[in-house]
Design a protein around this nucleic acid. Sequence first.
DNA 1: TATCCGTGGAT
DNA 2: TATCCAAGGAT
Length: 351
Amino acid sequence: MLHLSTPRPLDAAAVLAWYDRHARMLPWRVPPRARAGGERPDPYRVWLSEVMLQQTTVAAVGKYFARFTQLWPTVAELAAAPLDAVLVEWAGLGYYARARNLHACARAVVERHGGVFPDTAEDLLTLPGIGPYTAAAIAAICHDERAAVLDGNVERVLARYHALSVPVREAKEDLRSELARSVPARAGDFAQALMDLGATICAPRSALCMLCPLEPGCAGARTGNPLAFPVKAAKAGRPVRYGHAFVMRDGDGDVYLRTRPDKGLLAKMTEVPTSEWAGALAAPNYPVAADWRHHGQVVHVFTHFRLELEVWSATVPAPALLTEGWWADPRATGREALPTLFRKVLAAAGI
DNA sequence: TATCCGTGGAT
DNA sequence: TATCCAAGGAT
């Protein structure tokens, strides 16, 4: 316990009692009363929700989860779908490696496990897109494996509970082993309880300690300023990159789209052609000679840089020369795997 | 281990 | 407007 001054197991009974009264109703969740009756969630739905929820809010996930489970009710059906169809449905949700790994994972479950998700965190961890958190969450929620389910919410709860004096990143394994000591038999409810607690009571900008079942043992509450935890690491600045986006129309008004490279940002997603994105704005190097019209700029903020694209459009005189991509009906862009950035570009060009 | 990888909502 | 940040994983 390098970083925990007063390590002490959590009061799991108090956490579970709180959860029995306050569990949030979510589409992929089996509420505690039904769980007590023996009902267990479908591992496919739990896995799908956990992957969608990685670094993503419950509110953002809702429609996507409903759409995916409607289109592909089982892991076998998802595995049978083409990757392109999965990317189309994932478009807008972000972190697109998740969609590629989701599809690879579905196929691995079918090919290596007969279409049944493994039961243990250890085996789940071998699958694409499933890391320590997701493996532990699935095993705990579906099978009550007493795994340490440590996500951002739980990290915050524990950082406050232990009044952790260093950034979470430096003490993550300490928190994980300390958490593992606290996990009760109802491991699935316990995991979901701590996450709900972090989302509603022990939230980033508010700590409703008077409502918290962990308050009696909480070192952070005892300091009088629980919001001081977790301690923040120094943040890196966000550079700005600049470029040009070229929206091309053919004689029918269709828009030229193409697929992005296999690796890197927005890999394998659909795009409008752009210039390189550089630290300074260069003069536009139009892809074809045409009467180009300027539509102002689109600003899009990624995790590690801010992008400002000048948007141009033109009707191109010889569309047959553009063979790398395809021409899409502008009224049907919902069927394209367009990330939000390029939907903004099309909107700026009046599409 | 630090960095890369999206997006939208809250403040 | 700027900043933070949300159920992380891969490399």
